[in-house]
Design a binder for these strands. Structure first.
Lengths: 358, 358
DNA sequence: TTGTACGCGTTATCAG
DNA sequence: CTGATAACGCGTACAA
């Protein structure tokens, strides 16, 4: 179906290709210098706003650059200055409102700073993550924003960034071993609040759906859950889920079929709440009548679900934005972070029908 | 709150910073050559699998490269070979399941090909889009995947890519003027089907919620709608919406309050369906009793809404993937696309409760 | 099969 | 204030 014209291997060149072939020469600093009868270095300095250039030549150069649509070659300047005007964002997945929102925030700040954004999706695979990190160790990027993969336990690959003087900022799924600035929400506190909320609405047997024991956020949310259960003298029930929706539905289905006394579900991440909804639909379990559900989530349409879902709403856009701001501050000062520091941006409990009292 | 250690401005250097300062030298081809008593070019050739190198030295070089964790400097090779191993994805927004899915597909293919992915979000702003495109005209990327902004009417900025010999693939929101390969779904046909479905479920007065007249997909979906209305002898009612949710809710609210005879809504994009749900909740309009709704959408949880939403489900992941595959084929062959070609990946109608017959 | 030498477009260090 | 010149790391025509 698709038509690809192969320049080098076809015999006949269509007419319009000939047009494209005589493409305009890239406008370089050299070209500008030639046209203005100036030296290359003068032009370079004029464009980089050097103080040691007369206003007259400066304006002349900039005018021509503008006119000819000069764009500096990032590879040349990157090679020379060891700066790439590019940052990398490494995240587990993009089909997740939290990360989509975070990227939105990050991209906005990057644009303001004239930076480019590279995206890498680990799909929670430690091997992939390590490989991606490897490829960024060579001056490819000036800085990194990262949310570690659920699988990642050994974080030695990340430590290399410090050696390479590349600043790293973690957000959401952080890595305790690596000393840097980290942006998170108040996971433990919210874990506590969520559990307490379920209890207040009458739940006696609350199950916590966990995504991965390696995950910083999961651990903290779980700690909050455990703490609340202890306080309220409720029994605890931690269910280990996986990365696969189908498996999770099986796990949740088994759980609810086996233990009929479970009257509350605390989903550590959005997709587990959704799987729970699916299972309840299938098993004809009434929410919130028989089972109440609460979840960490950034679902825009939580209020439109049947029933509307009570959520702990994370400030994802804000976290992305702030993490990016911190990174650019470091880049501007030519520094890396050498101290662990957690910035906590609080989440909000939004009570809806999935936890309504009977 | 945040602690940034500034290398150049602080008086005291913590001990661990000193450690970081004496950072290891970047491992370059030169370094490998020195250690192996070989010339730089030999090493270069060995690493690029040249035929004119003995297996012995080839293996020796690769072994050391592996051991020292050599990673080629992309800026140097990019400068030299005018190839960047990087593609750009330009899309209107990321808070949209269609684009998130598409990126997922694109990233997968890019990874398989050893390419990096730059993300640019236009937020449907023509000025921003043109600026981004400008910055990509200088060999920054080897190829481009693009979904044009709703605002974009004048597409001259895009034409420059052809001059620069950079292959471009459009997906979803395409640009008719520019000759290249384009991946879309069967928008017009689905527009027809969706309208017909509403009519079959008893709707007599169907309003079409349009996002932008400039948008290729919107035009086609609308054409399908108009065609179906004509066929079925229904009156037409096209409502121009905007990029802002709040404004859209106002528009829809006014519409439903003013014209009580409207019994069907065809939302051209997901977010307009969601706004309609919000408005119906507020105005206590029963779906599907008083109003039936259908929408183009990639919402994973359409089935969990109250009521579940009838959708035209686009193969977003597949479109992203195929578009990327086509781009890499062009890159591999060192070609650009010079013919317009539309590849249609069909969507699926999924009937749910929001269009149930009374 | 291997080595030498040059250049990609910039920036930075010298002189003038 | 401006100009020549050397690097940055790599690829490749040419020579050996």
């Amino acid at each position: 179906m698709s038509i690809i014209v192969e320049f080098f291997f076809t015999e006949t060149f269509p007419f319009d290709i000939l047009y494209y072939c005589c493409d305009m020469p890239q406008i370089t600093i050299k070209e500008l210098a030639a046209r203005l009868n100036l030296s290359i270095s003068t032009v370079s300095r004029a464009l980089s706003d050097s103080h040691e250039i007369s206003k007259a030549t400066r304006d002349k150069v900039r005018a021509l650059a503008q006119e000819l649509n000069y764009i500096p070659n990032l590879y040349a300047s990157g090679l020379r200055s060891q700066k790439s005007k590019t940052i990398a964002v490494i995240i587990p997945e993009i089909l997740n409102n939290f990360f989509a929102l975070a990227i939105d925030g990050i991209e906005e700040i990057a644009q303001q700073n004239g930076y480019h954004v590279l995206i890498y999706l680990t799909h929670d695979d430690h091997i992939k993550e390590a490989a991606m990190v490897q490829h960024l160790l060579n001056g490819r990027v000036d800085g990194i924003l990262m949310s570690v993969a659920a699988e990642t336990k050994d974080t030695s690959h990340i430590a290399e960034f410090a050696n390479m003087q590349i600043p790293v900022v973690f957000f959401d799924r952080i890595c305790d071993d690596f000393k840097t600035i980290k942006f998170v929400t108040d996971d433990e506190h919210c874990g506590f609040i969520a559990t307490k909320h379920l209890a207040e609405r009458g739940c006696k047997n609350i199950a916590y759906l966990s995504l991965s024991k390696n995950l910083s956020i999961d651990q903290k949310r779980m700690d909050g859950y455990l703490d609340a259960c202890k306080n309220l003298q409720l029994k605890t029930n931690i269910i280990a889920c996986t990365q696969k929706d189908i498996e999770n539905e099986q796990i949740i289905s088994n759980l609810l079929k086996t233990d009929k006394s479970i009257d509350g579900i605390f989903a550590s991440v959005e997709k587990l709440a959704i799987s729970t909804y699916e299972v309840c639909n299938r098993l004809h379990i009434n929410i919130p009548g028989q089972l109440k559900i609460i979840s960490f989530s950034n679902l825009r349409i939580a209020s439109l679900l049947k029933p509307s879902l009570t959520t702990i709403n994370q400030p994802a856009f804000e976290i992305g934005k702030q993490a990016a701001v911190a990174l650019f501050r470091a880049l501007k000062n030519n520094t890396i972070f050498t101290q662990s520091e957690e910035i906590v941006v609080p989440s909000t409990l939004i009570i809806r029908d999935s936890t309504a009292a009977k």
